[in-house]
Design a protein around this nucleic acid. Sequence first.
DNA 1: TGGGGGTGGGACAGATTTGTTTCAGATGGT
DNA 2: ACCATCTGAAACAAATCTGTCCCACCCCCA
Lengths: 170, 170
Amino acid sequence: MQEIAAAAGVSRTTLHRAFGDRATLVERVSEHVLAECSRLFDEAGIDEAPVMAAFDRLIEMPLPLAKAYALLLAEPGAYRIARLVEEIRTQDDRFERFFARGQADGIFRPELPPRWLVYSFGAQLTALWWAVDDGFVGTRDATRLLRATVLTGIATDAAAAPDPGSEGKP
Amino acid sequence: MQEIAAAAGVSRTTLHRAFGDRATLVERVSEHVLAECSRLFDEAGIDEAPVMAAFDRLIEMPLPLAKAYALLLAEPGAYRIARLVEEIRTQDDRFERFFARGQADGIFRPELPPRWLVYSFGAQLTALWWAVDDGFVGTRDATRLLRATVLTGIATDAAAAPDPGSEGKP
DNA sequence: TGGGGGTGGGACAGATTTGTTTCAGATGGT
DNA sequence: ACCATCTGAAACAAATCTGTCCCACCCCCA
């Protein structure tokens, strides 16, 4: 509480006046993050817009939201609030349907479980915020790097298709 | 402490006798995790073995270590121990050199900063543990999914190369 | 000049955590 | 049976955290 108040630039007293209990504080913050996330999904049109276009809008998500979402998932107290757990599950399911739709449309590889894509994408989004925060990635490069890594991976085309079996050996 | 002791199946007293202070406990555990990680890097031969072979050995890393490493990075107290921070930096640099070597050998895309590859790979490794833990990914599929997602991404070959410009439109 | 309304500092009791000590019981080797 | 060693339960003081007061202060508006 002391640290939170200090980070927010207010006193512990004010923090308490604004949110009351500690439990209600995490609840309010979590609700806000989830709602913001849902709003971004809406704006990107992940339910109905063309998959690749929605994907491109999605990866421009503001990084601070990714940070907040990661911190929310890292907060153990959040999992004790049934409504929040339910909401997180709902969002995951929604995101999973997006990837499944992409697979049906031939955009995403069908052999990868859509649920795994949710995890993988989310993890890389968090990693991107972290890398930017640590100063290793510029804000300008962020979207490009995320798009490249998520969509086409890190291997070169030559290395990714070793079936022809004619490269790499001296 | 109470929870840690319970999770370890011992009493709080024994935990204290074994590690003394709480600070020294996190320090000892962190040291162990870092050392284990370094040992796995050695075994995989990330400094000198052929890049793709080392990569394939690396992605078979035991998931519990990824879990422990993620928890270590999530522990705020760890960053107050200068030696640990230094060690983490050393490991990151070593891993970054691995990716740079892969780029020099034509295995990894040269346009992605090696440091970002460290972040992206680490994030997906953590995500994989999480997905397995949540029951969405079987232990048997784990390595395959990680390899596919990291190396070649999630897009189909058709969607990944939209330059020819002849697919996806009805 | 005189209030509202919001804010911070300080103080407070209650709860929780932490580190330590003591003692009783279990284990295992000789 | 005996001793060494380890463990857990309980109790304890010290420290920290939490939630709530109260009061002084500041700022803005009338």
